[in-house]
Nucleic acid binder design. Sequence first.
DNA 1: GCATAATCCTAGTGCTATTAGGTTTTATAG
DNA 2: CTATAAAACCTAATAGCACTAGGATTATGC
Lengths: 231, 231
Amino acid sequence: MGKGRTAGNMKKSENTRARIIDAARKLFAEKGYQQTTVIEIAQEAGLSEAAMYEYFKGKEELLLTVPDMWVNELLAEMEDQLFGVNGAFNKLKKYVWWTFRRIEQSPMNAKIVYLFLKTNRNFLETEVYENVKSLYGKLLEIFEEGRASGEMNPDLDPYAARALVVGMIDHMATRWLLEDMSYSLFDQVEGTYGLLAEAFRPPSGSHSAHTGSEIVLRVRASPGQEIKIAD
Amino acid sequence: MGKGRTAGNMKKSENTRARIIDAARKLFAEKGYQQTTVIEIAQEAGLSEAAMYEYFKGKEELLLTVPDMWVNELLAEMEDQLFGVNGAFNKLKKYVWWTFRRIEQSPMNAKIVYLFLKTNRNFLETEVYENVKSLYGKLLEIFEEGRASGEMNPDLDPYAARALVVGMIDHMATRWLLEDMSYSLFDQVEGTYGLLAEAFRPPSGSHSAHTGSEIVLRVRASPGQEIKIAD
DNA sequence: GCATAATCCTAGTGCTATTAGGTTTTATAG
DNA sequence: CTATAAAACCTAATAGCACTAGGATTATGC
């Protein structure tokens, strides 16, 4: 096997490309996108500045490419993670936990996605964005399933529900990353998720509000006091 | 009154300062922070580039100052908006609606806060951040009130609840701004808020283990049917 | 009117992304 | 092995930008 060649039939160019992406990922996560210069990336990858431009159109393309692989991995793994999980609530919990676990495991990728990419003006036209949408799209299926099975509120609007879950994930991930991962992510998630899930449950009487035949009375009473209802 | 002097005892420098801030706000919102050059800001304000540096240390200080006034206004207005509103849920709804109304009314300020400022590495050390924290802090009071009055779940964790509300506001505002305000913000908010509020309600059995003094009865009745309670 | 300070400008400096044009290395065919 | 073409890489510009030095102009107090 030739020197400098890694296993398989990987060309040198692919190897170099990977080295550049790794260097960029590391530096973007450490210092932020704006604060990282292309010279630094090139040095970290062991190249001259100009040689880098053989592999990437520019710094911004690098920003858009770096997390692409990660999100692709996530997308490929998602179905696998949810496979065999029964029930909409179990699926939802698994989905959320899995997402946060991945964020915890790859804070470098997560930082780039949550801190630098999401507010980039070209983000919406990105390949990554399409994949992120697919990731979030799975939530709609989960809510539809929960609605159909009666496990969740039959009047649940899947889009509204998705907005809440995505908003929660984004917010908690962003805070954790901004605060430099200084606390336990899952300690926070535990309570917040439990609370959010309440919103998706069927109403107490367990039938739809559209029947209009239910009245709720709130009564104050001492412990042990008997309450009779006369109709 | 001297030419170029506006009403009151405003100095020329204050006038110029305000012109710079207005110019920066407009350009940041239109083109984004990175894409706006200081030359453009200076031209829009009718100054030379160098003169601008008599008023601001640099471009970043401008980014941090521009939305400061807006958030200050919000903070000053908040108590006023909630004054006289009874009940935790009414307060919460008012809070959320008021926030989105302000976002809708000042998309330029909102863009700067939600798209450019929040991911800035120095945001956490900002005056604005302190004020934003105060704005969100009010939510804690609301949840405490709801918990104490029995209107909300007595086991509600105010911090978890705040995370959900803030996450929802951030997410919906960011999306709306990124999509260039191309749809009705309030159409979206209506359903999502209604769903979220469900999470804060007391549990179905509805008596707190702690106070033990409130009981919720769910009764079926026909419209018009009279229900009497005998104790 | 004159000193002083506030306000502003012209003309840089230095850093950074990007490119022009050429050199070295590698792969390939005869 | 050698000629040749392509791939990989480099040195040395170029251009755009944030920011500054040093000085000119204008307003203000006495």
